[in-house]
């Protein structure tokens, strides 16, 4: 209760500061619209469905790109952790490509795939897959060898050991890697939507882009707020339960 009060007060102060700044006349309302204007934009966008539609388009791309990235990244990380050859080859490649900001893939994607959904998907997957692979690699390598030995004495072998021992044992690290991967996917997608203009769906990034083109700062700020809200929501709704489960099972030691 007290925490909610403090949090509420903090955000009220933030809004108050914003309002005060926009009234001070230091910047014109075109550059810094008051909170009221942004709220009006958000309300309008919610009522005519344009925000929800854009969020849906973006969400669909995010889900597809993230799931594909995870589907490739998880096995890849397993492979590099278990095979020295894979680690010396694909592992090094993953390490290198992870340092490449995913927006750098955008020019290539446009030339290869044109202004299509595939180009956006490509950028998101490239932004996601390496960080998930590296986290999985670290997680699998960090599994205490005694777990594998104990499992072997109980008759566990090969695939069974991998799915029932190595995978769950690496979860604390893998989940935080998945979370990081999601953050990368989200960033990549926004970059892709701002840079790759495509006509098959109008996402949040496009709304942001056209807000700038039209000098509609209320729209720019409004969409930014939506982007933050979606990020928070996914963090709480998807990763929150997973992290709670990890804490309950592993206790304080398990991050």
């Amino acid at each position: 209760m007290r925490r909610a009060l403090v949090a509420g007060l903090f955000f009220l102060l933030l809004l108050g500061g914003w309002e005060a700044l926009s009234r001070s006349g230091l910047w014109s309302a075109v550059i810094l619209p008051p909170p009221g204007a942004v709220a009006r934009y958000l309300w309008g966008g919610l009522r005519d469905g344009s925000l929800a539609e854009a969020a849906l388009v973006t969400g669909r791309r995010l889900a597809a790109g993230y799931l594909l990235g995870a589907a490739v990244g998880l096995p890849l990380g397993f492979l590099t952790a278990k095979s020295r050859t894979a680690s010396d080859t694909v592992g090094v490649l993953a390490l290198g490509l992870q340092t490449l900001p995913s927006v750098c893939w955008a020019p290539l994607a446009i030339l290869w795939f044109g202004q299509t959904e595939t180009a956006v998907l490509f950028v998101v997957v490239m932004g996601t897959v390496w960080s998930i692979a590296l986290a999985t690699d670290g997680g699998v390598r960090g599994v205490p060898p005694i777990f594998g030995r104990a499992a072997r004495t109980m008759g566990s072998r090969g695939l069974h050991t991998m799915l029932r021992v190595t995978l769950p044992a690496s979860l604390p690290v893998v989940v935080s890697g998945m979370k990081q991967g999601w953050a990368f996917a989200w960033r990549s997608l926004m970059a892709a939507e701002i840079f790759v203009t495509i006509l098959t769906g109008f996402g949040l990034g496009h709304l942001l882009h056209y807000g700038r083109e039209l000098h509609a700062m209320d729209q720019v700020l409004g969409v930014m707020i939506v982007v933050v809200a979606v990020g928070l929501l996914v963090d709480r709704a998807v990763f929150g339960p997973a992290e709670r489960w990890l804490r309950r099972r592993w206790g304080a030691e398990g991050r």
Binding site: I146, F147, R149, A150, T153, P168, A169, R249, W250, G251
Partner: peptide, 11 residues
């Protein structure tokens, strides 16, 4: 086998 540390699976 029963090991020195319990080697129980935390998950």
């Amino acid at each position: 086998v029963m090991f020195q540390e319990s080697a129980l699976f935390p998950w």
